[in-house]
């Protein structure tokens, strides 16, 4: 009996609890942060407080535009709490997809069946992609719903672009985790690689913004590629989105190639 995309279906449906939990977390964060904008971000007091902070700190946290609705959403949701949650979810899924499955001994049995290794990697990467897209779509929908009541004033096309970059950034960390896990056969290496892309991207962005001498760091930061021009306020840099998605696809290809060429479960 052949069902279409059996490995995708298993990877996707068997983790529905985890998907649901991350969705609840993201929804909670969105519903908590954004309605506070009128009383915090938009108030003059807040602006005074931000002005009182050391400018290095404001830049590191991307709080320089927090007094506007789009700036506030960019800094708090897409740039910080949402980014954090999405990265952890995506890296966890990516590391488990191949490396974790191999380490737990289950990949061996799957590969003994009527599947190819490339198919295993690609279908599981698809499951990662779909879960990330679902979460990003959820955030998009919630922000749209809150836009009016929280007086955010975000233009829908900018929000859409930001969501695409938000998903792309998470996908890149997840794909890095999947790739390192697939190359090494170890979940831990996958987690480390995914976390490194996420954390270093964030740190390079924070440090790179401090002085023109360090600006080269920004070019190495996927976080900066995605959010450097504040997409919620100014619209997406589609080339950056292309890079994020393209590199992710490349990492999946590397993973498929590596797994096809090596021994499994040794």
């Amino acid at each position: 009996m052949s069902t279409t995309l059996p490995l995708f279906r298993r990877a996707f449906f068997d983790t529905w609890r985890s998907t649901l939990a991350w969705a609840a977390g993201l929804a909670g964060a969105t519903l908590l942060y954004l309605p506070l904008y009128p009383s915090i971000g938009g108030s003059a007091q807040m602006q005074d407080m931000i002005d009182a902070l050391p400018p290095e700190m404001t830049k590191a946290l991307n709080y320089d535009q927090i007094a506007t609705g789009p700036g506030y959403t960019q800094a708090t949701l897409f740039g910080l709490i949402g980014f954090l949650l999405m990265t952890i979810a995506s890296v966890g899924w990516g590391a488990a997809a191949v490396g974790g499955d191999e380490e737990s001994g289950q990949l061996e049995l799957t590969l003994a069946h009527g599947v190819t290794r490339v198919q295993v990697v690609v279908e599981r990467a698809m499951a990662l992609l779909v879960r990330v897209l679902l979460l990003a779509a959820l955030v998009f929908v919630l922000v749209r719903l809150l836009n009016e009541s929280a007086r955010l004033g975000i233009r829908p096309e900018n929000l859409f672009g930001a969501a695409v970059l938000f998903a792309g950034l998470a996908l890149l960390t997840g794909a890095a985790a999947l790739c390192a896990g697939a190359v090494s056969g170890r979940r831990t290496y996958g987690l480390a690689a995914g976390a490194a892309v996420g954390v270093l991207g964030y740190v390079f962005n924070a440090v790179g913004r401090q002085s023109p001498d360090l600006e080269w760091l920004l070019r190495l930061s996927p976080y900066h590629w995605a959010y450097g021009n504040a997409p919620v306020a100014n619209g997406a840099d589609w080339a950056a989105a292309g890079w994020l998605w393209g590199i992710s696809a490349g990492l999946v290809a590397v993973a498929a190639f590596a797994v096809s060429r090596r021994d499994v479960g040794t």
């Binding site: 009996m1 052949s2 069902t3 059996p6 490995l7 279906r9 298993r10 799957t110 069946h113 009527g114």
Partner: peptide, 10 residues
């Protein structure tokens, strides 16, 4: 059911 989907007909 999953293994059935990726092996011979059952």
């Amino acid at each position: 059911a999953h293994y059935e989907a990726i092996s011979g007909p059952v």
